[in-house]
């Protein structure tokens, strides 16, 4: 075999891989658009806030995906819906505004696609980040104390300080990263209908 012929075959094979998957995939899911909800004049999926978008990056950098997935499967052959991880399965349109778009491939902990709907109280999410066992004693999730700051307590605690005791007259206050992460987790919900995945 001539080297040039081998080179041509390899290049064609590699291009076939990219074009076959990414280009065809782009034609299929890359052109999807959000659906307008005429009652609320909002879009489905809803666009996340700027803080939530920052939170997506915190979520990625803290490695939450090493234990949590972001993809609910349908009823065929999986118990995702029965476990209450979402009201319906995830579809490509759900990821339109996700930047970076992540799905995760591990489930040491629960799927988080609908966590914003499951845990509505932001303080509960914040407490989970600080000390997961406070919220659920059986939780195996590691705490993230580095997302919180210790500040000297004044005559009155700051509004968002955590309801935990800290030594030396200090209070535990969530950092910007913690607030962003909680905003992101709250933005994760599948409680809206899509033409290809209606709510039942």
């Amino acid at each position: 075999m001539k080297p040039t012929r081998a080179l041509a075959i390899v290049l064609v094979a590699l291009l076939f891989t990219w074009i076959g998957q990414v280009a065809v995939g782009y034609l299929q899911v890359g052109k999807l658009e959000p659906v307008l909800n005429e009652e609320t004049s909002l879009t489905n999926p809803p666009a996340p806030s700027g803080l939530a978008q920052t939170g997506a990056r915190v979520f990625a950098s803290e490695g939450c995906l090493e234990c949590h997935s972001l993809s609910v499967r349908g009823p065929a052959g999986s118990a995702d819906l029965t476990r209450g991880w979402g009201p319906r399965r995830s579809v490509p349109r759900d990821y339109l505004f996700r930047e970076p778009a992540l799905i995760g491939f591990a489930r040491i902990g629960p799927d988080l696609s609908d966590v914003g709907e499951r845990i509505k109280e932001p303080n509960d999410l914040m407490m989970h980040l600080l000390n997961p066992k406070k919220l659920r004693s059986t939780s195996t999730c590691p705490p993230h104390p580095w997302l919180f700051e210790l500040k000297l307590a004044g005559p009155k605690n700051e509004n968002d300080s955590m309801p935990v005791t800290a030594a030396d007259w200090k209070q535990v206050v969530p950092s910007y990263k913690a607030k962003a992460l909680v905003a992101y987790l709250q933005s994760l919900n599948l409680g809206y209908p899509l033409p290809e995945a209606p709510l039942k």
Partner: peptide, 9 residues
């Protein structure tokens, strides 16, 4: 690349 395509990529 939009969301779904990022996952394929």
């Amino acid at each position: 690349a939009p969301g779904g395509v990022q996952i394929i990529t």
